[in-house]
Nucleic acid binder design. Structure first.
Lengths: 182, 182
DNA sequence: AAGTGCTGCGCAATCCGTTGTATACGCACT
DNA sequence: AGTGCGTATACAACGGATTGCGCAGCACTT
């Protein structure tokens, strides 16, 4: 259980609404930890019951009102406590990989077109991350080290995936050339 | 929900016991999809109720009896069906990354020592994967393409992580040098 | 005028996953 | 004799996560 802590980390720098957090989870942090809005609102509710966060109600014009959450001292203390204990191993769920592993039974053309779609998403993400990394690099490195490192992880991850995708493409195209030639 | 499918993929080539599967999940596939033995036994139970897999009871000497599971036609059909529909996006839970993102509040020395431990595990895994890739490459490439590609993913992933770890180390050591020098 | 999409919050049901506990035997080590 | 490890399976309880649904208003397009 540490969606809580991911939220606390995000709130550490700036106050944010549930909606803001959901967007961040879909982007930068999302590569490393993901959550849907329902989960986030639920967790924010629990956190504010436990006085780890507080919120102020912000009415808006043309948009629905929002709640801007920020850390309390107790929340910061909890975060510090959590940072001290060793993190568990990383867990992944990559359905596409499972499909490649079971590729012998799959339609190669289908796999290839799915690969294209995923590669496109990854390339877009890579571009976003690279732009972000440059911005962070230009505007003071030392203050943003931690954000910068997080983004770097995203960049290296996308690159590794894209490189792997190239290998997969070559192998699969090779195989499909074999079978269509027969 | 597709632990089911990961299991079906693994049973596609060879029959295996729950225990065997648990080991595979802890190693090769585990990088991409993880599960504990309880989860696996439970899922095998469901799968066999639904006639997706069957098992034969194998008594052993010196060891407990085991159940060797294999795919049924219905199981293979279900797998093919699943392979056709697009996979969802990959999900990750990497607590260490969250800690780095929240690094401003963390003890740098503690983060560094945790980094060491994780890097060591990754290096070991990398060695395992590289050995496995070589074996697959030597013993016929074309039959093992899918296994080979899966392992390649593991290799590229470990390398990307280790490269990132070096960047983190440099940044953190730089920071801790600053603070101890003051 | 209707449809689509974005901002924003939330409940309920169900399913997935983790953790704890249990059993059983053999082997090796202390 | 006791402890720990490896093989092998399984139940129960709890908490985390996904999916489905609902409300509400504004902006922009068709």
């Amino acid at each position: 259980m540490s969606l809580r802590h991911a939220i606390l980390v995000l709130l550490q720098d700036q106050e944010a609404s549930g909606y803001d957090l959901a967007r961040e989870f879909a982007n930068s942090i999302g590569l490393v930890w993901n959550a849907t809005h329902q989960q986030i609102y639920l967790e924010l509710g629990k956190l504010s019951e436990q006085d780890m966060v507080r919120y102020r109600h912000v009415p808006q014009e043309g948009k629905p009102d929002k709640k801007l959450y920020s850390l309390t001292d107790a929340g910061r203390a909890e975060l510090v406590r959590w940072l001290k204990k060793p993190a568990g191993p990383a867990r992944i769920r990559d359905a596409f990989m499972v499909k490649v592993a079971g590729g012998a039974l799959a339609d190669t053309q289908l796999l290839l077109s799915e690969l294209d779609i995923l590669a496109k998403q990854r390339r877009e993400r890579l571009a976003t991350f690279e732009a972000l990394a440059q911005r962070l690099d230009e505007s003071g490195r030392d203050e943003n080290v931690y954000n910068y490192l997080t983004v770097r992880r995203g960049i290296l991850d996308q690159r590794a995936w894209l490189q792997w995708a190239e290998e997969v493409r070559r192998s699969l195209e090779h195989r499909s050339a074999d079978s269509t030639a027969s």
